[in-house]
Design a protein around this nucleic acid. Structure first.
Length: 604
RNA sequence: GCGAGCGUAGCUCAGCCUGGUAGAGCAUCACGUUGCCAACGUGAGUGUCGAGGGUUCGAAUCCCUUCGCUCGCUCCA
């Protein structure tokens, strides 16, 4: 089986997506719109299957997770509390010489002498157009160890890029600068004025476009879960540990959408926030905290699990999920973020990567993979932020804790209380709470703990639906060879979707369409199966062609009605059909009345 | 956002350099044929050559602008 490699392969996958109706470019008839994609008939079914399976396995098949479906536009304060309003709006600057882009707040401050120029004119020799000038002011900082000659050379290059053949520098003057971030530390060139990059989509609530009506399309679904935490906790009659999950659209003004649907500006997320007791509480209740020892799945949740155990549990659960919909373990990478890569609120994050055809290769030549999901241990950061910004308590009352606390000896009480207080204090200080008030608030939190109140910690598995759909498409795509009717090998394109996510589950064919008895029987079978699964009926062209068509759509099963079905060879074969399997192309004879149960078994 | 490349039928692509009424293969549809893996016959349809502007008697072809795609940089909290 010859597997095509690299972007060549990706191009063929993209082409198939369009040809068969998995993915279309959004607004294509108007020339498309960058970063937005539509799903055609097959893609829509695929995505629906992915979401349905996630929802079923996350909430319906568990008793400790409840669902939520929140709005896309929420109170703007949510994004202040979450940090998105500030972190999603980075000021950016470009080098005027090399066009290289920097984040303005990450430039090393430079000191020294800056040389300013008011412009340049065309100099000797033999200017093509002597009247040509450039009025654009420019400046270069003389970097340590560099010469004035080099500074002028830099300016010369700059004006040359502006269209002068042999620039003559005009209006040179010097300026002493201290700790300036206006120059490129690499070459001394002046940078552009900082421009704000807001990665959130902005809109207005109400018809008036005024500053107080500004709102944002959510850049992630998670914050709605935190904002509704108290409501859901109450009505779902759940106690920590429990989770709230949600599927929904999110929007990010990506600077540069890339790689087909992988990085889109409008996308869908499947997120779970799983709330757990802080480790101090576990220790108060059980004397110690269970932590992961061996690798692999830690098994059924236990009451004495600390955050590390829960984190490990969800990583393994999520990996099992991907395997259950047909992504082989070997195509996935479990990447533990290094301490320096962690977001400031995260204690640990595991990225689950899929090796896409467009993924980069490492030194060993292996595909490195792209993120499908991040499983983050976020501590109590999010709920704490919303507690501070909204002024509403995000604590839960834990009866067991209240009962257990008085039974602890004083040393234990002091140790747990002290640890909790210090963690709370550190968080508050980091969030720029003045030291005095941080001490006071942390002491109050520690007192709350002793009477059974605390802000739950959270484990967040957050997955991208569109990325997963793309991974499933890439994983399913396969070019192999199959014999034609003369036994000659021909290229066959097969989408080997797991039957669970395959857009169409079964195709029904009358062997010939000009025999009304065959057609009628086939339509009966279609009607028999249609209430149970997605069914595709096709009576055009030769039977082999129809099989191949369904191979490209990824339909796992084909059912063919022939003359034996009608009883031509006697009662033994009457009301039996050919069941053809996509991957093996093997055929078997099956009784019609057994079809529903047989197929349902295989597509669950 | 910057740099490079690309954009012609549903898909893959030729034609562009050197301007002169737009092509191939596959796919699609109809009819006939067809007894299980892309068979065959006959017929049909499809493009404002990504869009806009310019040069020209005449532009898919040359020039400019713009949009989209790919790659690199940047970004990915």
């Amino acid at each position: 089986m010859a597997e095509p490699k690299g972007n060549d392969l990706m191009e063929r996958i993209v082409s198939l997506c369009k040809r068969k109706g998995f993915v279309f470019q959004s607004s294509e008839i108007y020339g498309g719109i960058n970063g937005f994609w539509d799903y055609g008939p097959l893609g829509a079914e695929l995505k629906r299957n992915v979401k349905d399976y996630w929802w079923r396995s996350m909430t319906q098949r568990r008793d400790d997770v409840a669902g939520l479906d929140a709005t896309i536009i929420m109170h703007p304060k949510i994004w202040e509390a979450s940090g998105h309003t500030t972190t999603f709006a980075d000021p950016m600057v470009d080098c005027l010489l090399t066009q290289k882009r920097f984040r303005a707040d990450q430039i090393d401050p430079q000191s020294g002498v800056a040389y300013h120029f008011t412009g340049a004119g065309e100099g000797a020799p033999a200017p093509a157009d002597p009247s040509k000038t450039c009025d654009e002011p420019y400046a270069v900082l003389m970097l340590p160890g560099k010469s004035l000659q080099l500074v002028r050379k830099t300016a010369w290059t700059f004006y040359r890029q502006r269209g002068l053949i042999d620039p003559r520098l005009l209006g040179e003057r010097t300026e002493t600068v201290e700790n300036s971030t206006r120059f490129n530390p690499e070459n001394g060139s002046l940078l552009t004025e900082p421009r704000l990059f807001n990665l959130m989509f902005k809109t207005y609530v109400g018809p008036v476009e005024s500053a107080e009506n500004v709102a944002y399309l959510r850049p992630e679904t998670a914050q709605a879960i935190f904002a509704q935490f108290k409501n859901v906790a109450e009505v779902a009659r759940q106690k920590v540990p429990f989770g709230i999950c949600q599927i929904g659209k999110a929007f990010r003004n990506e600077i540069n959408p890339r790689n087909f649907t992988f990085r889109s500006r409008e996308f869908e997320q499947m997120e779970l926030e799983f709330f757990i007791r802080p480790d101090e509480v576990i220790e108060a209740l059980y004397g110690s905290v269970a932590r992961p020892e061996a690798g692999g799945h830690p098994g059924r949740p236990q009451a004495n699990w600390g955050w590390q155990m829960w984190h490990k549990y969800w990583v393994e659960e999520r990996l099992a999920f991907y395997e259950a919909i047909g992504l082989p373990r070997a195509s996935l990478v479990e990447y533990w973020q290094k301490p320096e890569e962690l977001a400031h609120y995260a204690r640990a994050t595991v990225d689950i990567l899929y090796k896409f055809p467009f993924s980069k290769r490492n030194d060993a030549g292996e595909l490195t993979g792209e993120e499908l999901e991040g499983v983050a241990a976020r501590g109590d950061f999010d709920l704490s932020q919303h507690q501070r910004f909204s002024g509403k308590a995000m604590t839960v009352f834990d009866e067991e804790l209240k009962a257990a606390w008085p039974k602890l000896d004083d040393a234990k009480k002091a140790a747990l209380s002290g640890r909790y207080l210090e963690a709370r204090r550190q968080y508050l200080v980091k969030m720029n709470e003045p030291p005095q008030s941080a001490d006071k608030l942390a002491a109050r939190d520690a007192a709350g703990l002793a009477s059974g109140f605390y802000v739950p910690h959270v484990i967040e598995p957050s997955a991208g639906v569109d990325r997963l759909a793309l991974a499933l498409i890439c994983n399913a795509y396969c070019e192999d060879e199959a014999p034609d009717e003369k036994g000659k090998l021909e290229k066959r394109i097969v989408m080997r979707f797991h039957p669970r996510v395959a857009p169409l589950k079964v195709a029904i064919f009358p062997l010939l369409k000009n025999r009304p008895e065959l057609v009628q029987k086939a339509l009966e079978i279609r009607d028999l199966l249609r209430p149970l699964m997605t069914v595709f009926y096709d009576d055009t062209g030769a039977i082999g062609r129809r099989y191949r068509r369904q191979d490209e759509a990824g339909t796992p099963f084909g059912v063919t009605v022939d003359f034996d079905t009608l009883g031509e060879k006697g009662d033994e074969l009457k009301n039996t059909v050919t069941l053809r399997e996509r991957d093996t192309m093997k055929q078997s004879r099956v009784r019609i009345e057994e079809l529903p149960a047989l197929l349902l078994e295989r597509i669950r």
